[in-house]
């Protein structure tokens, strides 16, 4: 029986988005063998947004409370999870910046294998079988993990599924641990409220923008989507200093799987394509009709981005207003 522990992410006493999706992935492993799914929340006190976890698939909701969890505390979280893992076949986290930081720490503490950025999870006999992009998405690796495994599931890989579980609350004790890393806080960047890796819509700009100031066009289009879009960039423009590296999509940047990816003035170098080819829908806007980006785009518009993008922004605003 494969029981699964889903370690959820909390920031400022608010549950981070993606918890329901992670529980859906957890259920996929557990349900194959009649196992259960427990959610774990490490926090200082009550956490808002945690009410619906039973409905989203948690049989139990474990809370580990400690003053140290005011900020992300990888040492405390890894130590807490390590006390629980005997009961589980798999520990799942979301493959966010935090989840990817935490997963290998847990794995090393409990002597388990760790699979990062997983897009498919399955239970397979005594193993967990996962599929994960390697070579930055240029290939997919199918891996069997024996024994207890730690799996970081890529955001967007699973959609939330109503499961109607009890979500029974339970309290777990935070063991004694050494706080080796002291996270002092998060400086919210004024610009990118939403990260390209977690946005439903990503609008990326490349050299075709001609000048860094023209990113404003993309910001406007993103704003038209009403807080669910983030602005990304190709490596060429990040290297040229037009955009911050955190916005870079591609092999040496972020790999994204949004529902909608709009590539503006991006020719489509192989490294860039590797970072966004798993988007559900790809739209390309480029003046060069032979640009490689059109080969993988679902919909393309050939033309001057300075005309097309404002027109699209206006159209999205209208659509969103309805």
């Amino acid at each position: 029986m494969a029981n699964v522990l889903a370690v959820l992410e909390v920031r400022n006493a608010v549950l981070r988005k993606g918890a329901a999706e992670l529980l859906a992935a957890a259920r996929r492993i557990a349900d194959a063998s009649g196992g259960t799914v427990d959610a774990l929340i490490c926090s200082v006190g009550p956490v808002s947004g945690s009410d619906g976890l039973g409905a989203a698939g948690a049989d139990r909701v474990l809370t580990a409370q400690h003053a140290v969890f005011a900020n992300y505390c990888p040492d405390g979280m890894a130590a807490t999870v390590a006390t629980l893992t005997n009961a589980y076949r798999a520990v799942v986290v979301a493959a966010t910046a935090t989840g990817k930081d935490l997963a290998p720490r847990i794995a090393a503490r409990i002597g388990a294998p760790c699979a990062m950025d997983v897009t498919v999870v399955d239970s397979r006999g005594e193993s967990i079988r996962v599929v994960r992009p390697v070579y930055a998405g240029k290939a997919l690796q199918t891996v069997d993990l024996a024994g207890t495994a730690v799996v970081a599931v890529r955001p967007g890989a699973y959609a939330a599924v109503p499961a109607g579980k009890a979500g029974t609350p339970a309290v777990v004790t935070v063991p004694a641990f050494t706080k080796r890393l002291d996270v002092t806080g998060i400086r919210t960047s004024d610009k990118a409220a939403l990260d390209v890796a977690e946005a439903r819509v990503v609008i990326s700009g490349g050299r075709g923008l001609g000048d860094p100031k023209h990113f404003a066009l993309l910001e406007e289009l993103a704003a038209a989507f009403g807080g669910e879009a983030a602005v990304g960039a190709s490596r060429a423009v990040v290297d040229a200093g037009w955009a911050e590296h955190g916005a870079q999509v591609g092999q040496t940047g972020k790999t994204v799987s949004p529902e909608l990816y709009i590539a503006v003035g991006i020719s489509g170098a192989i490294q860039h394509l590797a970072g966004m080819r798993t988007a559900k829908v790809i739209v390309a806007i480029n003046r060069d009709k032979d640009a490689p980006i059109f080969k993988i785009a679902d919909y393309g518009i050939v033309g001057d981005l300075f005309e097309v993008v404002p027109a699209l922004t206006a159209a999205v605003r209208v659509a969103k207003a309805h």
Binding site: G206, R207, G208, A236, S267, A269, I270, D288, A291
Partner: peptide, 8 residues
């Protein structure tokens, strides 16, 4: 665009 693909 010309030159956007890396020279190998």
């Amino acid at each position: 665009m010309a030159g956007s693909a890396e020279y190998t």
